Computed example of a mutant assay.
Amino acid sequence: MSSDHTTYRHPAPHWDAKLQRIAPHERCGFDSHEALDRWFAGWTGPLAACGFRAWVYEVPDEYVRVGAHGQALFDHARAELIETYELETSE
Score class of each variant (00 low, 15 high):
R9D: 10
A17H: 00
E26S: 04
G45L: 11
S90L: 12
T84L: 13
S90Y: 13
H76S: 12
G51L: 03
Q71N: 11
C28Y: 07
H25K: 09
W55S: 15
P60Q: 09
M1F: 12
R65I: 01
E62R: 07
H25R: 09
Y63S: 06
L87K: 00
E34G: 08
A17F: 04
R38L: 15
E62W: 02
E62P: 05
K18D: 12
F30M: 01
P11R: 01
R9I: 10
E34S: 10
R53T: 06
E62H: 08
A54H: 00
M1H: 03
E91F: 10
G51V: 01
D4I: 14
L36P: 02
G67H: 01
S32G: 03
F52G: 00
L47S: 06
H25Y: 15
A49I: 08
G45D: 05
A49D: 05
Y57A: 13
T44V: 04
G45K: 08
E62C: 08
Q20R: 04
D16F: 07
G45M: 11
H5P: 03
G42H: 00
T6Y: 08
Y85C: 11
H69S: 11
W43A: 05
H10W: 03
A23T: 04
S2L: 15
S32I: 06
D61R: 11
P11F: 12
M1Q: 03
D16S: 02
A48T: 01
R53M: 15
H14M: 15
S3W: 13
D31V: 06
A49N: 05
T7Q: 03
E34A: 14
M1Y: 09
I82A: 14
E83W: 02
E86T: 04
R38K: 09
G42E: 09
R65A: 07
G67W: 01
Y85W: 10
E26N: 03
G67I: 04
E80Q: 11
T84A: 15
M1T: 06
R9M: 15
V56Y: 05
S2Y: 14
A77H: 05
T44Y: 05
Y63P: 03
Q20M: 14
Y57G: 08
Q71E: 11
S3P: 00
P60S: 14
E80S: 12
E26I: 02
E26M: 07
E80G: 09
H5G: 10
T89H: 04
H33F: 15
H33L: 15
L19F: 06
W15A: 13
T7L: 14
A23E: 13
E26P: 01
I22E: 01
G45N: 07
F52N: 01
H14I: 14
G67C: 06
D37G: 04
P11A: 13
S2R: 11
K18G: 06
A68Q: 02
P60A: 15
E62D: 09
A23Q: 07
Y8K: 10
V66H: 02
L19G: 01
A41I: 06
A35L: 05
L87I: 00
A49H: 02
A23L: 15
R53A: 14
R53H: 10
Y63H: 09
R21G: 03
S2F: 14
R65L: 05
R27C: 11
R21E: 12
W43E: 04
L47Y: 00
H5E: 12
A48R: 03
R27N: 07
A72N: 00
T6W: 08
W15P: 04
D31M: 13
R21H: 10
V64M: 08
